[in-house]
Design a protein around this nucleic acid. Structure first.
Lengths: 184, 184
DNA sequence: CTTGTTGGTCAACAACTGTTGGCATAACTA
DNA sequence: TAGTTATGCCAACAGTTGTTGACCAACAAG
């Protein structure tokens, strides 16, 4: 039996996700992806057109923000923090995006769209104040992307060693204040 | 008069810093740096040996943490936040490091050393508790590197639009709690 | 058996990269 | 003035990359 085209396409995509997540866009080569998928580089081109399109297919990402209805008002920050950490660790797509957005303006734009489109509305709903919602969402982004950067990319030891629960406990009040509180 | 070798070396270094800060390590080419410095690529090699050494020379960085003696106990976080933002904006070296550390394990190690060596001791002094100092320093790193990432690299609009004072006001209490407070 | 389609390989291209060695030229020194 | 040295340019190398087109082999339909 010959492999179906869908199977190879999927295995290429899996290999691409790993490579992009580990090495970023520039350091990932079509040849390396093909080798990981045990296939000829030309197949990658045939199935995905070019490197950019392969990346686009590998970097499909959704924050999947949780439904916060029913969460006690003072637990929103901690719930959100826990969700983010879980989300980062469940899916390589975020690492793919983060590692690439740093040196690729187009991908940075995609990142901006994700956070503006998904975190912004949530902040607006929670705070009830459309005027400051974008800023509140931005503050949340700084803290959560900072954790992703330090924990998964730079691997700062103290940040790596914390458990999800500890992170949620420490960051909960921070997000809480950014979303619902005031500077002081 | 011929240019002195020091002048050329300095102009190469300036061009390299800009390129590395804007594009990261991989996308920066010796040829582009040379063109910016209006000089032949071979000169870059003669003066700096190879690309890695050029990078090392361009990425020399010190957090220059301020002396917090005399700062009112409840203003430590805000003072620190303001200092960081000022520091990022005064020197391209941080962007050079950040843009590269994301896809280069060696540079990531350098980043770890900077934060462990400079932020760790400060946290130990402030909190007076050596057991939790590293973790506190790590938390501060997540928030401040997160700001650097969102403001200067990803350029999330709400984060870019905030003034230094607003950032200091919002992040002050966060850093304050990470350094001196408890999770809850 | 032939024919067309599908999944796959191979070899090569053109462009770009870091890097090197030889050659020119201006300036200083004896 | 002659020689030496510092400064610089040019052309080329070897390796890697994305990408392409020609070719091969298995399977299904006629």
């Amino acid at each position: 039996m010959r492999r179906s085209s869908e199977d190879t396409k999927a295995s290429i995509l899996a290999a691409a996700r790993e490579r992009f997540a580990a090495d970023g866009y520039d350091r990932t080569t079509i040849r390396a992806v093909a080798a990981d998928a045990a296939i000829d580089p030309a197949m990658v081109m045939r199935y995905f057109g070019n490197k950019e399109k392969l990346f686009a297919a590998a970097a499909d990402f959704d924050l999947q923000l949780p439904d916060l209805e029913g969460v006690p008002g003072d637990r929103i920050g901690a719930t959100l923090a826990a969700h983010f950490v879980e989300r980062w660790e469940a899916d390589e797509a975020l690492m793919v995006l983060l590692r690439t957005a740093v040196t690729n303006e187009e991908v940075a734009g995609r990142m901006r769209a994700i956070f503006a489109g998904q975190l912004g509305p949530m902040a607006a709903t929670l705070s009830g104040d459309p005027a400051t919602a974008a800023r509140r969402a931005g503050l949340v982004a700084t803290q959560m992307l900072g954790v992703a950067l330090c924990r998964y990319v730079l691997r700062l030891p103290p940040v790596v060693e914390m458990t999800r629960e500890e992170i949620a406990a420490w960051l909960g009040p921070t997000l809480q204040r950014y979303l619902l509180g005031s500077p002081q």
